[in-house]
Amino acid sequence: MDVLSAMAVFVRVVDLKSFSLAASELGISSSSVSKQISHLEQHVGARLLQRTTRRLSVTEVGAAYHEKCQAILADVDEAENLVSQLQGKPRGLLRINCNMTFGQLLLSKAIPEFMAAYPDVQLEVALDDSDVELLKEGFDLALRIAHPKLPDSSLIARQIASIPLFLCATPSYLAQHGHPQTPEDLRQHNCLVFMLASNTNLWTLTNAEGSQTVQVSGDLKANNSLLVLQAALAHRGVANLASFVIEHYVEEGRLELLLPEFQAEQLSLYAIYPDRKYSPPKVSLFIEFFQGWLENNLQQKLHCQSRA
């Protein structure tokens, strides 16, 4: 029996609380997972898991052993990473978690370029807007647009890009309801709210004279910016969305930027990863690559156009 492999299987079973989920993630059969756990229990001479047809629980010994296994596997990973660093050859599986819309519209375009440049690195990407427990769920890196919440002191958050927001609406909506001339005029408009943005329905606009915060309201609140975008394109109201979400529609003339003398808030993109003595080269390499990719591809044309 390969003890390290069995430890890795045991850790994923405990973290996911499921034999079948661990098997699916590891690409092996559920019977193979069960067999490795049984062999591991025989090896250590103790019951690690309590299994019934309805639930899976960890014994007291199993919980303590799980903690030690995590530490041992992390040490092995760091040792291999150190060798990779010295050889200058990033390799292995890189597991990334990213915001849904940002991943669909931007990360998806960068991934093929990274894979072409670094063929020894395999990628596993999950798009998810919920808070992710990196270590528990086995991710190497998370990309998040928002101020990061880091209850775990073992994590590092590094800001790698700023993403401007812009007020916009369709020409048809504006022809019917008028163009807002001041931030206060937004109170008279149907404002479409993206609930996961830090500003939600309090929109702050800044010009040379200072900042103004306006509480807006409307008939739509959604936790996905693409849903808000589609409502705006259907002439439903005014939206406050990230540049990468609307730039294509502004260029086509389907959306018009509002209050061009004001700058809406900016969002921050963070790379979040575990704080380890030896950061895996594949993680730092991807962060540097993606930061450079964003500098070249996160267009600022809207920023310039809104000041014209």
Rank of each mutant, 00 (worst) to 15 (best):
D275M: 03
V216F: 10
S24C: 07
S243K: 02
C98P: 00
G292D: 10
L269Q: 09
L26K: 09
F19M: 14
Q159F: 01
V11L: 11
V44H: 02
L255Q: 02
N97P: 00
T200K: 15
A126T: 15
L196P: 00
M7A: 08
L93A: 12
L107N: 04
C69N: 06
F139Y: 13
R54L: 14
A63V: 05
T170Y: 05
S172Q: 15
D120P: 00
A64C: 02
E265G: 07
Q305K: 11
Q50W: 12
L127C: 03
G92E: 03
L107P: 00
T53G: 11
L258K: 06
V13E: 09
A208C: 05
H303E: 14
R254V: 06
T206L: 13
G253V: 07
S284E: 13
E80N: 14
T170W: 01
D128P: 00
V216W: 08
F286K: 03
F262Q: 01
N296S: 13
A222H: 05
F166S: 11
K221V: 15
F290S: 03
V58G: 01
A23Y: 05
S268D: 10
A117F: 04
H66T: 04
C69M: 11
A308P: 00
T53L: 12
F139E: 02
M115W: 04
A116S: 07
L302F: 04
M7T: 03
I246L: 12
P281R: 01
Y65A: 10
A142C: 13
Y118H: 13
Q85R: 14
G62K: 06
A197F: 10
A63N: 09
E78Y: 06
S268I: 00
V216Y: 11
D15R: 13
E133M: 12
E124P: 00
Q42A: 15
E184W: 09
R187T: 15
P148N: 15
G210F: 09
L107K: 04
R47A: 12
L123P: 03
Q36T: 10
V58I: 15
K282F: 02
Q122Y: 07
E60W: 08
L155M: 07
R254P: 01
H235Q: 13
D120S: 11
Y273L: 01
E67N: 07
F289G: 06
I37R: 01
F19K: 04
E265W: 03
L106D: 01
K277V: 04
L141V: 09
R55T: 14
N81Q: 13
V11Y: 07
T52F: 06
S5D: 14
Y278L: 07
V121H: 09
Q176M: 14
F244T: 05
A157W: 02
D152F: 11
A6I: 05
S153T: 11
L40Q: 07
S30G: 11
A64V: 05
N99Q: 09
I96F: 08
S5M: 13
L241Y: 04
I156D: 03
S84C: 06
T213N: 09
L233V: 10
L107G: 04
R55A: 13
S225R: 12
L167W: 01
R95Q: 14
S32I: 12
